[in-house]
Design a protein around this nucleic acid. Sequence first.
DNA 1: ATCCTTGTTTCTATCAGCAGAAACATATAA
DNA 2: TTATATGTTTCTGCTGATAGAAACAAGGAT
Lengths: 95, 95
Amino acid sequence: MKAQKELMQVFAELDDVEDVEQFCREILTAKELDDLYLRWQLLKELHQKIPQRTIAANHGISLCKITRGSKILKDKGSITLKLLKKTLERESDEQ
Amino acid sequence: MKAQKELMQVFAELDDVEDVEQFCREILTAKELDDLYLRWQLLKELHQKIPQRTIAANHGISLCKITRGSKILKDKGSITLKLLKKTLERESDEQ
DNA sequence: ATCCTTGTTTCTATCAGCAGAAACATATAA
DNA sequence: TTATATGTTTCTGCTGATAGAAACAAGGAT
């Protein structure tokens, strides 16, 4: 099997949150992982209609980084968008 | 929930290989994803006891990148090592 | 129309990961 | 012991993602 599909397969089979986290910490550097967390947080806030400049100020990041997230969410077929909705609905249920 | 755990949760809940792949393509750049694929491939080859200089030559990468993979696999508690074993066993079964 | 808010794009400089190369460490064989 | 193969570390320069800043575009409110 190609390395690409194989790695995706590994992720698909990982069901435990702790396992996923440990695996990510092993194959990504601390900075890469922090960047990834920030991207997710940024996508959440964009989806919640928080102004881009507010997000930039809150996290101390530049607008070019945010524009990128914005482009992802504009795509109607975006799976990130679906996953965000799922996550945010769950959070609102918890309140 | 913290963005960190939340993102890990998203990965843990993704069961379909195609979905994982699409999600990765959305939140990672093409280069970041290629790097990640290469890291996995490199880890596989290290685990198969292929000499580091052979791996470096085959993929056109430097040794410093390989040393890093080597360090991951030296850790007895490494989940990457467990996942590699699982993957390689499956591949040998297929033959 | 004018102003203000927000989204988007572009420019230069910075930083982390890594290439390329060399040196160093260790072990095994001759 | 000496030579060879392999693993590891270190150094300088390069590259891609992005910070910081500015400019541009599009609406909405007055």
